[in-house]
Simulated scan of single mutants.
Amino acid sequence: MNRNSRIKTHFDSRVLLSFIALLFIAGVVLAFKVRESEPCLVQSFNIDASALKVGEIVTFSDYTDNAHEWEWNFGDGNTASHRSKVVHQYKEPGKYLVNLWVNKNCNISKVVEILPSKELIDSTLFPRFDIPAIAYVDEPVTFTDQTPHAKRWEWRFGEGDGEKIDAIDKDPSYTYKTPGLKTVYLIVNDDTKYLTHKKITVLPSRNKKERINKVDIMKDTRDEDIVDIYINQKVPEKPIGFEPEKAKRVDNINVPEEEEEEATVLPMDEERLAGIIMGISMNRLSFKNFTRHFCKDQFPKVQLKDGSIVSVHYLYNTIRGKKIELKKVSMVRDRQTDCVSLIILDYKRKGLF
């Protein structure tokens, strides 16, 4: 019985060795993890830029204590690593999610909004020059530049297609070949972003014998034009020169009757045109007051809101003495002659009659 009660224990040495090896490896891994484990102290990172706009330099920086490894993701597909302070440029406007990993186990993110880049315009860089209000065909005109920083000049005097540079001197002279309202352009120092333009009215040659009525020349003369009187609200209760028996005639003209003479085309812009149209509708201005602003024998066509094209005679007879509401008016000029070739008009009748 004593022999059966004995307990005999036997361990395989290979199993024992394997168990010891596993314990050793687990201890090493645990020791490594404990050694590498650090508290996550990252709370935020800095974003600095003169302006958060497209193309501007943006600086990202982190000052976390005990940090030794960084990985940045700027939200636009670009990344940077191993530096606590990095710079980046965004190429498109929008909102971007910027992520930072510190020591591989700490992560923080911020949203940065990049605005579109706006080109700054420095008003002091625009050219400054003087031109006369009036010039005459076949007489030289002098243009004077007063731009302080100018070293190079490109002048275009409003004749031709506008592509050709007419002068490159500081204070050039130019002789106009055709009458009309011209636009003078000046660019200095090859900077096309800064361009200044002014208007000059070129009258027919004074060497010709035809006489020009002062009333028909310019609104800048001392004698006020009838259209100017109306637009400046100096109109009496009845139309100037109004005669009841002539009221139904197309040319109930306010201009004193004189022998026919070659009249200069008066300056016209969209604001003035709108005033004339309203003057016709109030029966204050005549057909001749209207057409004196267009080139002789080249009256413009009129395009109405529905796309139909009518003559200025039709327009005059349609709106004369009628109450209208003018919504929009614009003009198209012939590039060669500078004559008004098309009037684009949007108006509606008011009332029943």
Rank of each mutant, 00 (worst) to 15 (best):
V312Q: 08
T142A: 06
S109Y: 06
V265H: 03
E257G: 02
I200M: 01
T59D: 08
L23Q: 12
L16N: 10
K53R: 15
V98W: 08
Q233A: 12
R211E: 11
F74S: 11
N46M: 12
G158A: 04
D130H: 09
G55N: 05
K301H: 11
I324M: 03
N103W: 01
R152Q: 11
Q303F: 02
I309Q: 11
F19S: 15
Q146T: 14
Y96E: 08
T142D: 02
V98M: 08
N105S: 13
V54K: 05
L16Y: 07
E262D: 13
I212Y: 11
D169C: 00
D228L: 09
K246S: 10
D338S: 13
E243T: 15
D171I: 06
D122H: 05
F129H: 01
H293A: 02
I25V: 15
P267E: 15
V227A: 00
F45Q: 01
D122W: 00
K350L: 15
A49E: 02
K350E: 15
E69L: 15
E36D: 03
Y176C: 04
D306Y: 08
R83L: 10
K110L: 08
Y194I: 06
K350S: 07
L345M: 10
D169K: 11
G160S: 07
T201G: 00
W72A: 10
F294I: 13
M218W: 05
K33H: 07
F45H: 03
N105F: 01
D171A: 08
D190H: 09
S311G: 12
S286P: 01
S341M: 09
V227W: 00
P93F: 08
V28D: 01
F74C: 10
K238W: 10
K301M: 14
L195N: 02
K182P: 04
D220V: 10
E260A: 10
V137W: 03
S13M: 12
R335Y: 06
S311I: 09
V312Y: 03
L30E: 09
D338C: 04
F242M: 08
K209V: 13
